[in-house]
């Protein structure tokens, strides 16, 4: 039964692990350079005592790969669900070969258990190796950006992607068993996986632990800036400050008064009458704009601050394990449903 599973899974396994090997070569060739650039920069900026302000040149290295690797890591669980999971049983039901496979000297339950176990393990191994590679390659970048906890990075690092892969696989298998056709099973797997991932990311992950609150002075945020100037009126609009709390996940941030009222256009103009005015009937020069802006921020800071709601960096790993556990539990539940369905409908 094990040999049969390996024989039937040969093509998918070859393609999957072949592509992983190609990626591994790519990562092994480019990774060391990335690390060197980062180390050189760290040495230089420490010497110049400018590590917090100087731009890290590592962010400019292999930029296409910087976009490509996280993309691959993001879609891999879905691909596993589609190519490993959905056809596993659906193809046998669709082509009628289940009537051949289930009437040999091996029970359906054992047939199912071995297939699910072996291919599932392959899916988990593939995903774990890929995540480990991406983790390693992206290390210097994440250190430079300090954004490992951002949703886009969280879902391609650590252990959560392995949970996604297990879940997508089990979803594919179960959908295939219930729908009996490969193509609809693929569609259902994609939809279900997308819904589960987005659902957990939007509603479950932010609430795994009560988020922390922090007040930041407008003066310290540094990124408070002009979003745009109306060319005819010269009116400026303020951008909401991007709040950098290193390696944490900022859920929301808002400029509010000390009594908790949000900043409105009226209160902005009351505090900064110069905003939205044309001093000499002509649009202000960049120097004048900066000066108006700085004065305004200083005045605003007396009454307003930025209220940040966030998850701190030390929750990265607990959240990773929690999300891994959620998806793994869902995968096991789906496996149980498939087993129950098999027993109920096929004896």
């Amino acid at each position: 039964m094990i040999r049969l599973t390996l024989r039937q899974f040969r093509t998918e396994a070859a393609v999957g692990f072949g592509m992983l090997t190609l990626l591994a070569i790519l990562v092994a060739v480019t990774g060391p350079h990335l690390a060197q650039v980062n180390e050189a920069f760290q040495r230089a900026c420490k010497a110049a005592r400018a590590c917090s302000t100087a731009p890290n040149p590592v962010l400019q290295v292999d930029t296409s790969l910087q976009a490509f690797l996280p993309f691959v890591a993001t879609i891999t669980p879905a691909l596993i669900g589609i190519f490993f999971g959905a056809p596993l049983i659906a193809r046998e039901l669709e082509t009628g070969t289940f009537r051949l496979a289930w009437t040999q000297g091996v029970t359906k339950v054992r047939w199912f258990a071995v297939k699910l176990g072996l291919v599932g393990l392959a899916a988990i191994a593939l995903s774990a190796l890929l995540t480990w590679m991406v983790d390693w390659w992206m290390g210097p970048l994440n250190a430079a950006n300090q954004n490992r906890f951002d949703p886009s990075n969280f879902s391609t690092h650590g252990v959560a992607p392995v949970g996604y892969a297990a879940f997508a696989f089990a979803l594919g298998v179960t959908a295939g068993l219930l729908l009996r056709r490969t193509v609809p099973a693929i569609g259902a797997t994609l939809l279900g996986f997308l819904a589960a991932r987005l659902g957990v990311e939007s509603w479950v992950r932010p609430n795994l632990a009560p988020p922390l609150h922090r007040s930041l002075s407008l003066l310290n945020t540094g990124h408070f800036g002009v979003l745009g100037v109306n060319a005819s009126t010269g009116a400026m609009s303020l951008s909401a400050p991007v709040v950098p709390i290193a390696n944490s996940w900022v859920l929301s941030h808002q400029v509010v008064s000390h009594s908790g009222q949000p900043l409105t256009a009226q209160s902005l103009l009351r505090t900064c009458p110069a905003y939205g005015q044309l001093p000499n009937g002509t649009p202000p020069s960049p120097a004048e704009m900066r000066s108006i802006h700085t004065t305004c921020i200083e005045r605003l800071a007396a009454h307003f601050h930025t209220a940040v709601i966030y998850q701190p960096p030390d929750r990265f790993w607990p959240f990773q394990w929690a999300e891994f556990a959620i998806f793994l539990a869902a995968a096991l539940a789906l496996g149980g449903i498939a087993y129950w369905w098999l027993r109920r409908h096929y004896g």
């Binding site: 039937q8 082509t95 009628g96 070969t97 009537r99 051949l100 289930w102 009437t103 040999q104 000297g105 091996v106 029970t107 359906k108 054992r110 004896g347």
Partner: peptide, 20 residues
């Protein structure tokens, strides 16, 4: 369908003789 029972002792050729 039970392994202790007839599964190993019954040969089956299904309709349209499915093969891989």
């Amino acid at each position: 369908g039970s392994i202790s029972g007839p599964l190993a002792r019954v040969g089956f050729v299904a309709q349209d003789t499915p093969t891989y």
